[in-house]
Structure formats: structure tokens, C-alpha cells
Design a protein around this nucleic acid. Structure first.
Length: 119
DNA sequence: TTTCTAACA
DNA sequence: TGTTAGTA
């Protein structure tokens, strides 16, 4: 399928799909005319990319992880044990970020003399 | 018409 | 990320 169809089927834009390719997240074939030609697996890969992106992972990390996710799942635990440590570290970084943000919010709550409110 | 690349907003 | 230009 061509880029616009893949974009439509995955809810992204052709622009984003070209960007993914530039970051080596996707490697579509090319038609004789130079048009990108995507297969079914690409559609699944894009969904994985979007999931990983929403997890806050960078494109370089995603490029490593992607080949470890089977087309039909969203879990990689059983597949590539080597990556698990790296992702665990990523999780630690995220936790630290959350803690810092929470601390910043607490300070603002004090300055504003408001009682902590849940969003 | 659709897509391509590259560059600019 | 969107958009634009000039092509094939």
C-alpha cells in the first residue's frame, strides 16, 4: 500500500511516516517510480511506534525495541530479555521526572497557599 | 492525482 | 509537524 493509505489506516500523517523512516523506524520498499510501498507488517509496526512514542521513548530507543515486538502483540518481555534492563532504567528515569514535577507542584501549592488539588 | 525530496515556518 | 515548490 502507499503512504496515504497507511497513514489513513493508522491515524497518522504521511509526513509522520516519512519521519519514522528517516529515523530508521520503518523501511518500506520502493516502487519503480520511487513511491514508498508498505506491507501489512508496517501497519502493525506503526501502531507499535505510536505506543512507544506515547510511552515517552525516543526514536533511537524505539528503533532498538521495535524488532523485538512480534506483529501480533504489545508485549516484549518474552522476546528480547537484553532490552529489559534498558527499559527498566528508562522507567526509573520517568519515575524521577515524576517525582521532580510533583515536588515542583508542591512548592507552587505552598506559594499559592492552596490546598493540594487533584487534577 | 499522488508522491517525492528538501527546506522553511 | 505542517506546508510549500517543482517533479515524475
Amino acid at each position: 500500500m502507499r503512504i496515504s493509505e497507511l497513514a489513513r489506516r493508522t491515524g497518522t500523517s504521511p509526513r509522520a511516516l516519512r519521519y519514522y523512516e528517516e529515523k530508521s523506524l520503518l523501511r518500506p520498499d520502493r516502487s519503480a517510480s520511487g513511491y514508498r510501498d508498505y506491507d501489512e507488517r508496517a501497519a502493525q509496526a506503526v501502531r507499535h511506534i505510536q505506543l512507544l512514542l506515547s510511552a515517552g521513548l525516543g526514536t533511537s530507543v524505539i528503533a532498538e525495541i521495535l524488532p523485538c515486538i512480534p506483529d501480533d502483540t504489545t508485549v516484549l518481555a518474552p522476546t528480547c530479555p537484553e532490552l529489559l534492563d534498558g527499559l527498566a532504567e528508562e522507567r526509573v528515569r520517568i519515575t524521577r521526572s515524576i517525582d521532580k514535577l510533583a515536588a515542583a507542584r508542591d512548592i507552587l501549592d505552598q506559594l499559592l497557599q492552596t490546598r493540594p488539588v487533584r487534577d
